[in-house]
Design a binder for these strands. Structure first.
Lengths: 78, 78
DNA sequence: ATAAATATGGGCATATTTGCCTAAAGAATT
DNA sequence: AATTCTTTAGGCAAATATGCCCATATTTAT
C-alpha cells in the first residue's frame, strides 16, 4: 500500500464515493468512462490512496448526476 | 498567467473561497497559518490557477469553521 | 503622499497525481 | 468448476501541485 501522509479525509471521501456510485448502479468502469477519468484512478480514489483534485471531483459528480457537495457528506475531523 | 487546461470549476471554487474567507474576516495569511498551508497556495487557489486537493479543501474548511460542502456552493457546468 | 498590510507573480526543487499498461485477485453468473 | 465481470495492485513517464523564497503590485490606513 501507499498512504504516505495522513491526508485529511481522503479515506472517508473514497468510502462515500463508493457508496454513492454503487447506489447508482455504476461500475467503476462506467463511472470512469462517463467522467472521462481512468478506471484505475477511480479505484485509487475510492480506496483513499490518493488525494484527488477539485476538477476530478466535479467531473465525477457530474457523471453520477449529483452535486459535488454530496461527495463531501462525510465526517470531517475537527 | 498559467491556466493550461480548462479545469472544471476551479475558477468558481476559488472565487467562492475568497468570498467566504473575506466574509469571515480572514486575510490569506491568517487562513494559511490556521490551515497549515502556504500563503502563496491560498492565493493560487483563489485565483483558480491550480486544482487543489481534497485534503487541502478540508483543511481550509476546518480553518474557516465551515463544512467543506460550503466551498462547493458554486455553479457547476453540466 | 507615505507607510503598512495584503495579495500577486514567478522560479525552482521536490513530491504527488494521473494516464497508460499489464497482471492478478475477488465476486458474481452459468 | 469454469467463465465473465469487476476491482485491486503495481510500474513507469509525464504532468501538475506544493512549499519555500523573493520581488513587485495593489489595497488600506495614517
Amino acid at each position: 500500500m501507499k498512504q504516505l501522509r495522513h491526508e485529511q479525509g481522503i479515506k472517508e471521501f473514497g468510502i462515500n464515493l463508493r457508496k454513492i456510485r454503487e447506489s447508482k448502479g455504476f461500475t467503476q468502469e462506467m463511472l470512469a468512462n462517463k467522467a472521462d477519468i481512468e478506471i484505475s484512478q477511480i479505484s485509487r480514489i475510492e480506496r483513499g490512496i490518493i488525494n484527488t483534485s477539485i476538477s476530478q471531483i466535479i467531473n465525477i459528480a457530474n457523471a453520477l448526476g449529483i452535486h459535488p457537495k454530496e461527495l463531501f457528506e462525510i465526517e470531517v475531523g475537527e
